[in-house]
Every structure is written in C-alpha cells, then in structure tokens.
C-alpha cells in the first residue's frame, strides 16, 4: 500500500519534471500559422513557390512525396508490404474462425452490393487524380481495401479472398513495390539519377499516375490481405 503510494508520487514528480520544460518550450514556439515562423520562411517557401513546377504535380503533397522524397515513400511502400508478410507469417496459419451463425441482414447485403462498385470507382478517382486533388495512391488504396473488407462482411470473407487466386494476390500486394522500383530504375536513363522523374511534363505525369496506381492497388490488396489473414480466411 505504502509502496504503491510512493510509486504514484514518483510518477507525478517525473511527469511534472517532464512537463515543465515541454511547456516552457511550447510557450516560445511561434503562433501557429505565423508568417515569420522558421517553418514558413526557409524550405517550405521554396516548395510552395517552385514545387508544382519541379515536382511535376499540382498537388504539392503528391509532388513532394513522389519526387523530392521518393526514397522515403519507397520505404513506406516497403513497410506496408512487409507488414502484410509479417501478419501472414504469424496469423496466416491459424485455424479458420468459426462461422458466424447469423446470416447478414438482406438490407445490409443489398446496400453493400449496391454501393461497393461506387466505392471502387471513387477509390480509382482518388488514385488517378492524386496529382491534382487531395488524395492519391495511399488514400485510394485504403478505400479499395475498405471496399474489399466491406464486401467480405456480407459475402463471406473466403469467397472474396478466392475471387483472385493466391498467387495473383501476392503479385497484387507487391504491385506498389514493383512499380516504384521500376520507376526508380527508369530514373537512371530518363533523369540521370535513381528515383528521378524526367523533365518532359507529359512523360512525368504518366509516371506519376503509374506510381499512384501501383501504390493504390498494392496498398488496397495489402489491407484486404491483413483482414483475410486475421479473420482466418486466407489459405495462401
């Protein structure tokens, strides 16, 4: 009892000791959105001024992600793929979950079947327009994955998982990594360095959209794969 109380006091003291310098630092931060803040006066001003031209897409975020920091993004795509590999290795061999005894409601079934294709179209729209509008490969990919998970709620996960053969699923999940690696290597002849995009605007746009599509399809397939593996519907 006494020890517990001492522990609590110690925790409180430690938290206070941590909080005071943090708060002191926070008071000295410039106001959010202030024009003179260091974050707005150095590199980001350059991004905003010339990013659209140099990055090759009207949406600055996409330009930064796919061009200036392509290596980081490649790492991210690899991490997503690796996450699926890890989950599949741990959970993929687990026995199948017991069947849900209650069939889905006919209302839910009908509405999800009706809306599913529209969600897919919206996901594709987000992916393809990632260089102009908010969104892009990652966001659209998540929407695709969400659609597959939604469908497997009404259609039985195994049916959805079997719509594509196990081998094709693996290729689909690797699409992001493969397309990114391909574009990166193509940078050598086209721009003179790895991960470079060519200067010619038409070609650059085609490559940007290809990257977005690859990331989107790969991301969606990985997310759906995570769900199938955890729900025990994965036989690959």
């Amino acid at each position: 009892m006494n020890r517990r109380r001492a522990g609590r006091i110690l925790t409180a003291v430690l938290i206070a000791a941590l909080a005071v310098p943090l708060m002191y630092g926070m008071v000295q931060l410039p106001a959010p959105g202030h024009a003179d803040a260091p974050a707005h006066t150095n590199v980001s001003a350059g991004y905003i001024e010339r990013g659209a031209e140099l990055g090759g897409s009207e949406n600055l975020v996409t330009g930064v992600l796919l061009n200036f920091r392509a290596l980081d993004t490649f790492g991210e795509v690899l991490v997503i793929f690796t996450a699926w590999l890890a989950v599949a290795a741990v959970a993929g061999t687990a026995s199948n979950a017991e069947r849900d005894p209650v069939p889905p409601s006919p209302v839910v079934d009908y509405v999800i079947r009706l809306l599913g294709p529209f969600i897919a179209i919206f996901a594709l729209f987000v992916i393809v327009n990632g260089h102009v509008l908010p969104g892009g490969g990652f966001q659209g990919g998540v929407l695709l994955g969400a659609m597959l998970i939604l469908l497997s709620l009404v259609m039985d996960a195994e049916t959805v998982a079997r719509a594509v053969s196990a081998r094709s699923w693996i290729w689909l999940r690797a699409t992001g990594v493969l397309v990114f690696a391909m574009v990166a290597v193509m940078g050598l002849p086209l721009a003179g360095y790895l991960f470079g995009l060519p200067d010619e605007p038409g070609l650059r746009q085609v490559l940007t959209v290809a990257l977005e599509l690859g990331i989107g399809i790969g991301g969606g397939a990985v997310l759906a794969g995570l769900f199938f593996a955890i729900a025990g519907a994965d036989r690959s």
């Binding site: 979950a97 908010p134 892009g136 994955g145 769900f227």
Partner: peptide, 26 residues
C-alpha cells in the same frame, strides 16, 4: 491538410477499427 485527413478517416477510423474488432473477436 486534406490529404492527411482523408488517410486518417479511412485508416484510423475505418480499417484499423475493423482489424481491432476482428482480433478482439478472436
């Protein structure tokens, strides 16, 4: 930051919750 907001809504509020619930059900 609409790009981040979209990801947060889809991943954080949508898919992660579903994955958590599936794991919890097991």
């Amino acid at each position: 930051a609409p790009d981040v907001a979209m990801t947060e809504a889809a991943v954080g509020a949508g898919i992660t919750t579903v994955l958590f619930l599936v794991v919890i059900s097991r």
